[in-house]
Design a protein around this nucleic acid. Sequence first.
DNA 1: TCTTGTCTTGTTATGTTATAACGTTCATTC
DNA 2: GAATGAACGTTATAACATAACAAGACAAGA
Lengths: 156, 156
Amino acid sequence: MPYKPTGFSSHDHDGCIAQGMQAAEAFCAAKGLQLTPVRRRTLEILLQAHEAMGAYDVLARLSQDGFGDKPPVAYRALAFLQDHGFVHRIERLNAFVACARPGADHDPAFMICRSCGKVAESELSGSGLTASARESGFVIEQTVIEAEGLCPGCQP
Amino acid sequence: MPYKPTGFSSHDHDGCIAQGMQAAEAFCAAKGLQLTPVRRRTLEILLQAHEAMGAYDVLARLSQDGFGDKPPVAYRALAFLQDHGFVHRIERLNAFVACARPGADHDPAFMICRSCGKVAESELSGSGLTASARESGFVIEQTVIEAEGLCPGCQP
DNA sequence: TCTTGTCTTGTTATGTTATAACGTTCATTC
DNA sequence: GAATGAACGTTATAACATAACAAGACAAGA
Ligand SMILES: [Zn+2]
Ligand SMILES: [Zn+2]
Ligand SMILES: [Zn+2]
Ligand SMILES: [Zn+2]
C-alpha cells in the first residue's frame, strides 16, 4: 500500500509527534537501547520542527534545555537516532529530519522545496538504479534519493 | 540504449579525457560560454583523476599550476562546470566528479564504493519518485540519486 | 566489596567545507 | 572614452563535522 507523504499538507501534528516518540520508545525497549534524555529530547525537537534542521540548530535547542552546547553533543545524539532509523540525514541540505514513518523498515526518499525549505519523506523507487547496479556487479547497501523542486504551496 | 557505466572497469582513459574536453569545448563554443584557463584546467584535473575530488584537492592542483590558491577560485570554476553539466557534485561525499557522459542531456545517478571510494555514473531511475511527486503536487527540478555500497573489486 | 569494562556525556581543540564582500582587469558597447 | 558586465583574485568569515581526552553511571564478575 502506497505511503501518502504528509510533508506538504496539514495533518495532526501533535499526533505525529506522539507517534514518533512512542515508536522510538517501543523500539528501544525491545532492543535494549538507551533512549537517554539528550537523545529523547533531540528526537522531540526534530519531530516538533517537522522540517529539516541543521545540527547546530538542534544543538542550540538542546543547550537551551540544559544539555551541553558543544557540537559533539548534537552530532552524537543525531548519529544514534539516525543509526536506528528515527531520524534521516538530508545530504543536500546537510540537515536532519525526523522519520515520517517511524518503525517501518524503509529506504527513504525525499522531496525538498527550494522555496520554503519543507521536506517530505516518500518511498524509495530504486528500479533503474538497482538494475544498473546488478549489471555492473555493484552491491548497494544504502541509497540517497533526494528530489529538489517546488512544493504545491510554492508554485506560481 | 542503456548506458554502460565504466566507473569500475578499465577503459581507454586517455580517450575519455580527450572526449570530455572536446565535448566541453564544443558545447561552450556553441553556446558562447567562456571555457577559460582555470575552468578548462579544473575540468582536466577531474577528468584525469577519474574519481571524486574535494574542492580543496582540486584547489591544491590549480594553485600548483599557477592559479589562485583561495577557495573561491576552485568553487567558482566547479560551479561553472556543474552548471553546464561537465561536472557533477556528489552530495554524499561533498565532492565533485567529471561527467562520464559529456554532452548527453541527462540526470545522473551514482554508485559510490565505500571501500575504495570509486564512483561510477549511471542512469536515472526516477519512476517511484516521480509518481510520488506527481501524487503530492511536487514539481521536481533536480534529483540526487546516490547509492553507496561495494564495487565488484571490493567484495569479499 | 572491589574492580573492571562498557556506555554515555561533556569538554577542548581542530579539521573540513563553503560563501560573502570587495577590488582589479579586460573586453564589449554605447 | 565612459559605462557595463564577466571573470579572477584576495580577505575574511561562516557553516558543518570530528578527534581525543576526562569524568560519571552502572552492571558483571572476582
Ligand atoms: Zn523514514
Ligand atoms: Zn514550498
Ligand atoms: Zn576515464
Ligand atoms: Zn571498491
